[in-house]
Design a protein around this nucleic acid. Sequence first.
DNA 1: AAAAAACGCAACCGCGGAATC
DNA 2: CGATTCCGCGGTTGCGTTTTT
Length: 276
Amino acid sequence: MKLPKLLSLSFISTRLSVSIPLFFYYINSLQAMDGLQKLLFLPFIRAKMVRAPCCEKAGLNKGQWTPEEDQILVSYIQKYGHENWRALPKEAGLLRCGKSCRLRWINYLRPGIKRGNFTKEEEDAIISLHQMLGNRWSAIAMMLPGRTDNEIKNVWNTHLKKRLNPNQILPKSKRRMQREDNLNSIMEFSSASASPESCSDFSFSSSESSNVAEGDSHNASGNDGVEEIDESFWTETLSMNGCDSPLMVADSLIEEDMSFWLRIFEAGELEGFPEI
DNA sequence: AAAAAACGCAACCGCGGAATC
DNA sequence: CGATTCCGCGGTTGCGTTTTT
């Protein structure tokens, strides 16, 4: 004979395990719990208290922004600013996650964004800066007023990289095929390795695996041997060298190319070169 | 003219660091 | 001091558009 679901042990225990700790939690009597109670209930309470995902997937819009959404976001930020991205969409009445709002504002809606094609000068500046900084797009974007890191990253990946080294770049679809092939090889290798020990050296993160699969010789930070340098060092040193605006930096860079940077390095070696 | 391939860009995702509790 | 939360960054993907076959 089948018991009604409400009377089943699993149903009751599930409900109790969640509702009892939550009861203690919600009436704010956690401190009144004795050691055994805490021991028993804290894991459940913690499980309920864990950080919610960035977008509670249900009910939030994804994909392209509509003009109406743009308008709401812009007028809200103009009125109240963006102190708290996470709270912003709720307060503004947008069905978006905070991250999505931030990205839309930073990359598209904020004042001063330069639209349209990159000039030859801008492209040259990106190439030179990339030689120095590697894939630190936000640092590069600081040197190019009106351009966003995302835009620069896109230009680099779609145009400039090819221009510099056309032979190494495969068409996107072929890259994907190659990546899938390589990932399949990895999966086959992993499943063939029976013991956990033998697999332990073969745990790829998604980005690592795609780098490997694409035959990308860049290291993890994408800097190709360029050492990490604190951003504040650049800001200070550039202003020391009489470049008080990012545009001047870019201009100097184009005019004087590497010799400009060599001078900065030399100056940086003398004092205040940051610890790595 | 139609299908396939390539391109370009906006947006998403996951991670790491800083701030706060 | 550890746990939690938030933000920003870089890598990656999805998809509309353009070009090629």
